[in-house]
Every structure is written in structure tokens, then in C-alpha cells.
Design a protein around this nucleic acid. Structure first.
Lengths: 332, 332
DNA sequence: CTGAAAGCGCTAACAA
DNA sequence: TTGTTAGCGCTTTCAG
């Protein structure tokens, strides 16, 4: 045993069974126009010979090829990305696609993109590169769906968030429940030059001027819980009047919660706390986290729809904006 | 524009450029033995024509084909699986493999397995089916690596856990820190007939008889945090002497923590708490969770090694047992 | 019900 | 540096 044995192909089976290769194909794929007897015989032989079909050959010959999409995220250790991946996985498998998840380690984004372009039928994900032309070029004609931003370049698809109305609505609802002074925990991508996030902009537009000034920018490491913890301290110290804190993400809100525990600040008694994302994990903290939900709102389905259109080669680029309902839990 | 246009192939490019297909191949793949000039010209043409290489064709023709492995889990929403997937993803991409993650919805396990067998080069994951023969048959010759159990059937690989020594060591260390009466929160797969887990068996073997009797079996739903919360209540009510609780998983430990908060039980002051898994999430609870770590211990690397051997067609089935170091954090 | 022929799109080996 | 010739392993016509 062992050694470099040649691959068993349908040809071998055909020879062994004394039939044509075509007949073998029919047997293997449960196609019609073949007798029970020969099918069984062929199946038996193929098993005996240890036959394993080549997915490359069959896809090459087949008219309808199996689609593979790549989902690109920063780090798969961030539960937001993994929960979204789970949703997307469902949507993909419902459509008969394979999906590979790619977390972009140290590899330059554009390089990774052009590598992927040769391996999958479409790429979707959170890409940071701002030069859309460069992205489009790197994708080499592969459909590309940008998440969390709105594409402007021809041929690039995107699904963005509608933070404006979402924050307006959130602040409104919180006011109804008694909130007066808001504060925000904003995130700054580690090391990068700071630029206000769309969330911050939406926040500032939704609150009163005093609250709008109460923003703490946290430099967020991979695990941004810590950033949220530090940020909460700073926010409360600098703006003690704050009765409602809105965090950039649920992860940061979890950090804020930890800080609150430590300081003996009651949530939501003294300070109301709201995150963004709708992580299912937010349900297990005490108190459970109220959140502006992205997950579990059909966002993944929306993405899949866009991919589907892109795959079908629709010419116009598809651009959507997802809305974010409030997921009321205990913290606000 | 639009419509069902024929695929652009190297043949088209060759014609357009007035060279052979082989030359196009050389240009596209950055191969040697081609002049800068023609390469540039070909690249330019291919871009203009919107050429997209067929991964199926190239893999079929190529001698070294790209490997794809499938990682099968119950639910990708369980952070244990997603963190392990992240580790495995790293190990896979380091080896140049693609990895697709498959969460087995309602599809019968064996059926899913045989479907996968035609799409990937190897399957690894947590499979529940106990009939190993059936598993081997469904895999149709594709290398199969079982996780969390030890395979006994010829040709089936596995990576299991060495819970015996791990629990013995854990209990030992906890005793040194003053623990006297232990209790365990055991998990019962939802709806299934209960059978003691290897963790429970290892626990019982490691503790004194009184502690060995203090086991609460929690029926664990997908999100087993709730199960842990309920279980903690029951355990403390039935065995009030308990000073140290060991949970089946970190998720359940998180639930226990929540119950402790609610009851005003100080952790680790009054009760020490230990989970299993080594979730990075365990670092963000307050107090942070001590755990018998699986994640972050080279477990994924070990799995990848086994897959590698299986892929190389090593005849003997590879069977490993991973050890579990204690990850000391605040809760114990 | 079965078979023969003609590809799918690309790359390996060898010649030129 | 470039081209020619054979495939890779399977499926799709279209005839039998």
C-alpha cells in the first residue's frame, strides 16, 4: 500500500464494467436512461475501486457551475463578523453557493483581493481601501460587494447602513423614556488617522448641541471591549451629566458595562446604555444590551440578493442601504 | 450591453494578440520565458476583453490542485465553534488550503457528509453520528477527521481531548487554592438521550465522592448560557456547601456567572468558577473566566497536521489527543 | 437503454 | 522567446 497511485477515473470504472464512460456518468449522477442493474453494478465497482469524482472536471464540463463567494472580514474573532458570517452562510447555502471566509491577516488588501478574484465568483466584505478604482482593478472583473459604505464607482456594488434615520429614531425613543444628556463612545481604527465615523455624524445630527460635544474617541484594538471600558470612564469623568451612553458597537458597550459595574454605576438606573450591531451575545450580559440592530434584521439576505444580481451580470451596480431597528433589551 | 455573452477565454486573447494560447498562459500566470513586451500587451488585452480565468479549468490542467477542506459544526453562532474556525482558518491558509465552513442545519449528517465528499478534499469537524462505519461510507473515501472523539474504525482520523489528566490537574490546583467541595454543571444535548460526557467522567474521577455526586445536568439549547444560569441555581440550592463550580463549557459558565450576580454570590470570593474551552470572550466578563483551554493552545494546528497527513494519503489513520492547560483568569 | 464524438478552458512537456 | 501537441476528467449532444 501507499505510494503515488494514479487517480481512479470514470474511465477505469467503465473499463472494469465493460461499459462506456457515459454510462458511468449516468450511474454516478443518478441520471435517467439507465437500467437499475447496470447502475448498481457500476456503483459497486466504483466503490470497490475507491473512485472519487473530480469536482474540477465535472464543473468544467457542466453547464451550470457551482458558485463560490468569498466573505472578507478584518478578524473573524470579532463576534460581529462571525455572527454576520453565520447569517450569510445560511443565505449562501440556501442559494446553493459555497462560501469561503477570509480574514485578512497582514496581507495587503488589494493583493488579497486579486488573489481571491481568481478563486471565487464574487467577493463581498468589509474592505477598507478608499480608492475604489484600485479596488475595482484588483477585483479583475469579479463582482465586488462593499459592505458598510456606499460605492460610487461604476461596477462596484454595495450595501450600506442608513444611520441617519436610525440614530434620529433612537434618540427620539430614548428621550421619550426620559433621556436628557447623551454621550457617545466613538471608535477609531487602531493606528489609523482619525476620521469621524458615519455613526458619529448621525449621532451628532440627532442630539442637542451639548450632547453632540460629549463624544469620546476610543482607539479600538481587535478586542474593542477594553476600549469601551476606558472610554466609559473618560466619558463619565468629563461629562458627569450624561444619562445615556451610545457606543459605537455592542462590543464597546460591553466594555462600558464592565466599567459601570466597577464604578458602581447602575445600568440602566443611572445611565442608559445602547450599542450598535445587535449581537446575540448582547443578550447574555447583565443587564442585557439594548442595541441598534444590524444582525438578525435581514441584512444578510439583502447582501445575498445583491450578490445574486451581481452574479447574474446585471449591468447597473446595485446599491442598497439597510435600516437599523432598535433591539430593546434591559440596558436602556 | 447585457445578454448572455460567451465567456472570454485565453483563446480569444490569443487570437486578438496574435500569439498562441500557451503564451497567454505564461503572461497570465507570471511565468518565465516570455518577453516583457508581449506580457504587457497580453495583460492589456485581457483586461480590455474582460477576461476571467476559470479556476476549474486551470485546476484540472494543473498538477498541483488547490485543496479545499470543509469544517463542519453544529452552529456557527456558538462562539466556541467560530473561534476554533478562526484558528483553523489561519492554519489552513498558511498551508494554502481553502476552507469552507459548514453548519449542519437540519440536513441529516450522513447526507451532508456525502454531499461534501464530492465538493472538498477533506472533511473535519464535530460529527455526532456514532456509527463510524456509516460515517466512513458517507465520506466516500474523502479523508475524514473527527473532533472531540476517538475514531476506532480503519481509515478514520481523529483529534480528541485528554480530559482525564486535565481535570485531575485542575482539581489539584484548585485544592491548592483552597477549594474543598466541587460541583459540576454538565450539559445534555437538547432532546437527546442523556449519556455522561467525557468531561463528567473525568470530573468524577478527579474529585472526592461527595463532590462527584454534585452534578447538575443542564439541557443545553443552542445558546447554553441560559442552561448554565438555571443549572447554577439548582446546583447551589441542592448542594449549598459547594465552593467551586466547574462548568461544561465557558458559555455555561457565563450563565452561571449571571446567576451568581443575581443571587449576590461573589465570584470567586464565595464560589470559584471554572469553564472549559478558553473562549476569548471569557476575558470580558466580570470577573473574567478561568477556563480549561482548548482554544489558543495549538489545537487547530494539531488538527491541520492531521488533515495534512490524511491528504497525503498516509495509510495509517492518525489519532491524537490534545491536552488542556488551565487558563487562569479572575473567576478562580 | 447505451455508445461515440466533441468539447469545457487551461497547462505540461516538448520542439522550434 | 514562442508555438505545438497532448492531455486533465468529466459531461453534453447526438446517434444508435
Amino acid at each position: 500500500m501507499g505510494g503515488m497511485q494514479r487517480r481512479v477515473t470514470i474511465k477505469d470504472i467503465a473499463r472494469e464494467a465493460g461499459v462506456s464512460r457515459q454510462t458511468v456518468t449516468r450511474a454516478m449522477n443518478g441520471m435517467p436512461r439507465i437500467s437499475e442493474a447496470t447502475r448498481d453494478r457500476i456503483l459497486e465497482i466504483s466503490e470497490r475501486l475507491g473512485y472519487r469524482p473530480s469536482r474540477f472536471a465535472s464543473n468544467l464540463a457542466r453547464t451550470s457551475k457551482t458558485k463560490t463567494i468569498a466573505f472578507v472580514v478584518d478578524s473573524f474573532r470579532n463576534p460581529y463578523y462571525s455572527e454576520l458570517a453565520a447569517d450569510l452562510l445560511d443565505a449562501a447555502s440556501a442559494r446553493g453557493w459555497q462560501m469561503t471566509i477570509v480574514s485578512r491577516e497582514d496581507e495587503p488588501e488589494l493583493q488579497l483581493l486579486s488573489r481571491l478574484a481568481n478563486q471565487v465568483d464574487a467577493v463581498v466584505g468589509y474592505l477598507g481601501e478608499t480608492d475604489e478604482k484600485a479596488l475595482a482593478t484588483a477585483a479583475r472583473g469579479a463582482p465586488l460587494v462593499l459592505l458598510g459604505r456606499t460605492a460610487t464607482t461604476d461596477g462596484l456594488h454595495s450595501v450600506d447602513f442608513d444611520f441617519g434615520p436610525a440614530f434620529a429614531n433612537l434618540i427620539d425613543e430614548l428621550r421619550k423614556r426620559g433621556s436628557k444628556r447623551f454621550g457617545m463612545l466613538e471608535s477609531q481604527p487602531l493606528g489609523a488617522v482619525y476620521e469621524p465615523s458615519t455613526r458619529r455624524i448621525a449621532y451628532e445630527a440627532a442630539v442637542d448641541p451639548v450632547s453632540a460635544a460629549a463624544v469620546v474617541v476610543c482607539e479600538a484594538p481587535p478586542q474593542s471591549v477594553d476600549a469601551g471600558e476606558l472610554g466609559f470612564d473618560e466619558l463619565i469623568d468629563r461629562f458627569p451629566e450624561t444619562d445615556t451612553v451610545i457606543a459605537f458597537s455592542d462590543l464597546m458597550a460591553m466594555g462600558a458595562l464592565r466599567a459601570a459595574h466597577r464604578r458602581g454605576v447602575d445600568v440602566p438606573g443611572q445611565v442608559r446604555l445602547v450599542g450598535v450591531d445587535g449581537l446575540s451575545l448582547g443578550a447574555v450580559t447583565s443587564p442585557a444590551l439594548t442595541s441598534l440592530a444590524i444582525l438578525g434584521t435581514g441584512f444578510a439576505e439583502q447582501i445575498a440578493d445583491v450578490i445574486e444580481q451581481a452574479l447574474d451580470g446585471g449591468d447597473g451596480a446595485e446599491r442598497r442601504r439597510a435600516s437599523l431597528p432598535i433591539l430593546w433589551r434591559e440596558s436602556a
